[in-house]
Design a protein around this nucleic acid. Structure first.
Lengths: 226, 226
DNA sequence: ACCTGAACACCGTTCAAGT
DNA sequence: ACCTGAACACCGTTCAAGT
């Protein structure tokens, strides 16, 4: 009682011991609130009311922590995916689950990028691979098909992460950010950049999520034997 | 003369003034030698025999410098590409030029990733776009086709960068690194990860460059109308 | 077993002061 | 106009010392 009161009066120290799970949840919250650069061991230890060194008892280092936070979201999404449609539809759905996770948590995009063979990525490969088998893709094309899809998803994710970070750093919303880029494109040399210039209007009006799904569709069409 | 002698005797100060170009070249050298984390303003200013603050007169900040270094290599490769084949072949060649640049300078992969709308990327989009037009891709599909290819290239590049960084950090060569991953895959739960496990042997023997080209081919096949 | 928190070895960036 | 280099406000990580 006396102990509790003194802890409460300080308002700082925790009662129960830390757990890896708590640390991961706090890291996710911090990343969501303030992006990749918001996750520091100092901010994290303050939020967890503990010393900065204590975190290292449960987590190897920052990259381990980022990967674990990423896997928490991706692994959950992949496990919970209900695959009721055709294999093609299912792959598209798995991709969109990834897209939505990255869209809601932009830092996931770069965490994925920098942990290309870790557990979050394995969850994705496995689920997609099962659907490729269901599609009847021959064994010899498993590797190519899976890695093409993966590389594409990784690319979109990384770009989303970069866009999110850029927008946050400059305090821009999506429309303003796109507007700035489109304007810059319009001012390019017409001789040298005619194609890029012609994309400016589509840049302003495009829908990232629809484009992502359409890109998956394009790749699936290329994978199919006909 | 007296000035020159004293500078030479110190062996440190430069004679002519710094230029942005010199800084970029030194940055590239540093990045090639010791990776992304090798590029610091302290190391750079030492190499250039100047003060760390001097660099900021020619370069806005670290990210500006990385983008400029990236553009130096990518822009050059894109400008010099001789496009003598069919549009499909040319797109594949452009992609391979990118792949080779990133393979020789892994940091380019992440520089590209974190500057998705900067000048290096514009060079690529423009060249690829011209070939898409030559393929007869209708205007309405320009955006989708270009961004799918770009996202794929970006994904491969980012993964290459991550692999390179991982290998350097752990002092592994390619074979050892792949071996470690393949072994880890083999030890996964057969129930939960049957597909990933089945890829382990292909992981050991695959050829990144060939796979990359094949992936481009897959996407091109999806883009073609037939 | 688990936690503390000062200390270490760094960063990128700024800026008064110099030439 | 261009450069200096100390100073600022941070990092991730370690580790002796505590409980």
């Amino acid at each position: 009682m006396a102990k509790k009161a003194s802890a409460a009066s300080k308002g700082q120290r925790r009662e129960e011991s830390l757990s890896r799970e708590q640390i991961i949840q706090a890291a996710i919250a911090l990343l969501d609130e303030s992006g990749e650069e918001g996750l520091t061991f100092r901010a994290l230890s303050e939020r967890l009311a503990t010393g900065s060194g204590a975190i290292y008892w449960h987590v190897a280092n920052k990259s381990d922590l980022m990967t674990a936070a990423c896997d928490e979201l991706i692994g959950k999404a992949m496990r919970e995916a209900s695959l009721a449609g055709t294999p093609q539809e299912n792959i598209c759905l798995l991709g969109l689950l990834m897209f939505d996770a990255i869209d809601a948590h932009p830092w996931v995009g770069s965490a994925l990028m920098y942990a290309p063979h870790q557990s979050p990525m394995l969850h994705i490969v496995e689920r997609i691979g099962q659907q490729l088998k269901a599609m009847g893709v021959p064994r010899a094309k498993h590797w190519l098909s899976a890695s093409t899809l993966l590389n594409y998803i990784l690319g979109v994710g990384g770009r989303n992460a970069a866009n999110g970070q850029h927008a946050r750093a400059h305090g821009l919303n999506r429309t303003d950010a796109l507007d700035a880029i489109a304007t810059a494109w319009t001012q390019l040399d017409p001789e040298e950049y005619s194609f890029v210039r012609s994309l400016a209007t589509q840049l302003r009006s495009h829908d990232d999520r629809k484009d992502f799904a359409a890109g998956i569709g394009l790749i699936l069409k290329g994978i199919s034997p006909n």
